[in-house]
Amino acid sequence: MIEKILNPLEYLPRLPLGEGIEVAIEWLRVHLSPVTRALSEVMQSLIVRMTDGLIWLPPLVLIILFSLIAWRLSNRSVAAFSFAGLILIYNFGLWPAAMQTLSLVVLSAVVSICIGIPMGIAGARSETFHRIVWPVLDLMQTLPAFVYLIPVVFFFRMGEVPAVMATVVFAMPPVIRLTGLGIRQVPKELVEACGAFGTTEWQKLVKVQLPLAMPTIMAGVNQCIMLSLSMVVIAAMIGAPGLGTKVWGAIQRLNIGGGFESGLAVVVLAIILDRITQNLQNKKIQG
C-alpha cells in the first residue's frame, strides 16, 4: 500500500500495445493473405531460379566471372582477392550455401533499391513526405531485427521469402536516406538554372539531380548491400538457407571450427561486395 502511494505511476492501467499489435497482425494476416501468398510465390520462384542457376554453373566459371566483374568495376587487387576468396569458400565446401546467400542478398538489395530510390526522391521533393517517412526509417533501423523476424513468418511462413522481407525492412532505409540527401545536396543555383532553361520536373530530375546525387546514392546502395548480407545471415533463424544456416548449425552443435569457416565465408562475400560497390561510387565522382 505504502509503495503504491509513493509511486502513483502504479495506478496507471497498463497500455495494451502488445495486444493491439497482435490483433492488428492477425487481422492483416487473414485479410492480406491472397496478396502475401501471391507475392510469396513470385519471390520464391525468383530466388529458387537464381540460386539454381548459380549452383548449376561450374564454380570455376563463376569464380572467374566474378573476378572479371571485380576487375572491370574496381581494380586488379580486388579481382585477385575475389578469385582467392571464392576458391577458399569452395574449398571449405560452402559453395552452394554461399550462392544461396548471394542470391538472397541480390534480391533483397534489388527490392530495396527499387523501392528506396523513388521514396528517396519523393522525400527530397516533398517536405510532408519527408516528415512522415523519416521517423519510420528511424524505427526500421533501430527496432531489433528479431522483433519483426517473427511477425514476418506469420505472413510468409518460414523460408527465403520472409528472410527477404525482413532484410528489405532492415536494408532499405540507407537507400531512401542517402537518395534524399544526395538530391537535396544538389546546389540550389543548378536547380535554379534548370528552371531558367524551362525544364520539366522530370528533365530536371533525370538530367541534373540524379546524376549529381549519384555518388551519394551509390553510397546508400553500398550500405544497403552490406546490411542485406548481415541480415540474410541472421535470417537463417527463420529458415533462410545459406551461410547463415551453416553458422547457426555450427553454433548449435558447438562446432567452433565449422562456425569459424562459415563466418569467414560471410566476411569474404562482404568484402567483395563492398569493394565492388564502393568503387562504383568513386568512379562516378570522377566523371
Binding site: 543555383e189 532553361f197 541534373v208 546524376p211 566523371g287
Partner: peptide, 30 residues
C-alpha cells in the same frame, strides 16, 4: 523560358557532370 530568354548566373551554375559542349547544349537538349 525555353525560347524567349536565357539566363547567365553569378556563380556560373554550370553542370559539373557535363562537358563544356554538353553544358552549352543544355538549353537545346531541354
Amino acid at each position: 523560358r525555353r525560347h524567349k530568354q536565357a539566363m547567365v548566373f553569378q556563380q556560373f551554375a554550370l553542370f559539373p557532370h557535363r562537358t563544356v559542349l554538353e553544358n552549352a547544349a543544355f538549353g537545346l537538349e531541354i
